[in-house]
Design a protein around this nucleic acid. Structure first.
Lengths: 116, 116
DNA sequence: ACAATACTTGCATCGTGACGCAACCGTGCA
DNA sequence: TGCACGGTTGCGTCACGATGCAAGTATTGT
C-alpha cells in the first residue's frame, strides 16, 4: 500500500488524531496549568490556577477556556466563581484509544509494548 | 491541596507532558502525514509522503524532520532516498504511560474507564 | 444603590511557525 | 566529468497565537 492509497483509506486512527486537542497541549503555559490541575486532584478557580502561573490572570482565563473547548477540562459556575477540573476519564480514554488505533495499523514484527 | 501546592509537588505526569511532542501533533498537515504513515504500515520516502499532501515537498521534508525530532518518526537513509517510518512502539508507549500518570492523580470516585 | 470580587473580552504588540520558491547538497548513473 | 534525481536549507511573506493592560460584565455583600 502506497502512502497515497493509505491516505485515502479510512481507519479508526483518522478520528482520533484531533489537532485541536494536541494543539491545546502544545503550549508550555497550558501544560503547566493542566499538570497543576491534574496533580491537584480537585477542581480549582481561575484565581487559584493563576497563582501557579507567571502570566496574567486574563491569560489564564483564556487558556482554561481553550482547554475546556478542547475537551481536556470542564467548568462549573458557582456564583461569581468558575471552577475548572480535569476530565480524567475522557482524557485518559482519548489517549488510550489513540494508542490502540495506532497499534492496530502496526505491522507484525514491530514491538509496541503490548502483546495484543 | 491547593493548585499552588500541587504545582510544586512532583509527580510522574510532569515528565510525560512534553509540549514538544504535542506541538508536533498540533498541526493539520503534520497530523495528515502521521495518519498517512500510520495507515500505510510501512516506511515511505519524502516524495511518496508528499504525494498525499497539498503542500510543497520542501514543507513535507521539514515536517518529517520535525516529527522525527519529536520522537514520533524515525528516518533511514538509502542512497539518495530518505525513508521515514512511524515509531509505533515508542508512540503508543508514550500515550499509554501519560494516561497512566494522569490516572494516578485521579481522585477516587471519578471514572477513568480503567479499574486499577 | 454602591462597591467589591471574580472573571471575561477588546485591543495592540510581538514572536513563532507554516508556506512557497529558489538555491544548494549528496548520491547514482552515463 | 557532467547530469539527473531526491532532499534539505535560506529567505521572504503571511497568519495565527501568546501576552499584558484596560475596560466591561456578572454576582455578591453592605
Amino acid at each position: 500500500m502506497t502512502p497515497r492509497e493509505a491516505a485515502a483509506c479510512c481507519r479508526p486512527v483518522d478520528g482520533m488524531l484531533d489537532p485541536a486537542m494536541f494543539r491545546a497541549l502544545g503550549d508550555a503555559t497550558r501544560v503547566a496549568i493542566v499538570a497543576c490541575l491534574v496533580k491537584c486532584g480537585r477542581e480549582a478557580s481561575v484565581t487559584e490556577v493563576a497563582e501557579c502561573c507567571l502570566v496574567d490572570l486574563s491569560v489564564v482565563s483564556r487558556h482554561l477556556a481553550l482547554l475546556a473547548r478542547a475537551g481536556i477540562l470542564e467548568s462549573r459556575r458557582e456564583g461569581r466563581t468558575v471552577h475548572y477540573r480535569v476530565r480524567y476519564g475522557h482524557l485518559c480514554d482519548q489517549l488510550r484509544r489513540l494508542a490502540d488505533a495506532i497499534e492496530q495499523c502496526c505491522p507484525p514484527g514491530e514491538a509496541t509494548g503490548a502483546s495484543s
